[in-house]
Write a protein that binds this DNA or RNA. Structure first.
Length: 197
DNA sequence: TAGAGGATTGAT
DNA sequence: TCAATCCTCTAC
């Protein structure tokens, strides 16, 4: 299990890169599912793409202001739960959105949860992977050192395999929408949307 | 307290 | 291209 110290570092971009290849594991209702992380996006209070930009604190984003190493789960478009890893120290609102996984364990459980007949594209997208792993808003704020959701070492990903590109779906962020804060593993089939060059 | 909009997805 | 669907935030 990754230690708290992994999450509490100050450089959210370094952590976002470091999360690629790590294994995200959940044990919900006794069912274990896991996958390698192949796509992440970094968010910081310093830029406008973030829910907590300009240190704007609300009931929803409260968890981001807490210490790193916790889960930030929220509902998007009224339909999808999105899973984030909170990083940095208290009062430094930063988080990393996990956007895609490559299934490692419990594929049958995932398929059942998604009502799918194939594993193809099962966890390629932030809304889908939370459904596949059984993550929902009731997990908002829980510790990643706990027994329901945690991360482990996975595959080694060399820096040359990491592609940085602009984040998805944040057109409202002004100039910050161009920040290359999305990280994907080059050529990985499980990435949600291939980065345009 | 009403109204607008969103870190998405899958079907058309 | 568009609808689904509901929580969250802002304005009044």
């Amino acid at each position: 299990m990754l230690p708290e110290s992994f999450y509490r570092r100050k450089n959210v971009l370094a952590i976002a890169r470091g999360l690629l290849g790590k294994t995200l594991v959940t044990k919900i209702n006794g069912q274990v599912t896991a996958g390698w992380i192949v796509e992440t996006e970094a968010y910081s209070w310093r830029e406008r793409g973030c829910h907590a930009h300009d240190n704007k604190r609300t009931a929803r984003n409260e968890v981001m202001f807490g210490p790193g190493g916790h889960a930030y789960v929220y509902l998007c478009y009224g339909i999808h739960h999105l899973f984030n890893v909170v990083t940095n120290e208290e009062e430094r609102a930063e988080a990393i959105l996990v956007r895609a996984l490559e299934p490692v364990e419990g594929a049958e459980v995932m398929m059942k949860r998604l009502n799918a007949v194939r594993t193809a594209r099962l966890t390629s997208g932030p809304g889908k992977l939370t459904r596949a792993l059984g993550i929902s808003r009731q997990h908002n704020g829980i510790s990643l050192q706990g027994e329901e959701i945690w991360l482990e070492e996975g595959k080694k990903v060399s820096p040359r395999m990491i592609v940085a590109s602009p984040r998805i779906g944040i057109d409202y962020a002004g100039a910050d929408m161009h920040l290359p804060w999305r990280f994907t593993i080059r050529g990985n089939h499980w990435v949600s949307v291939p980065p345009g060059r």
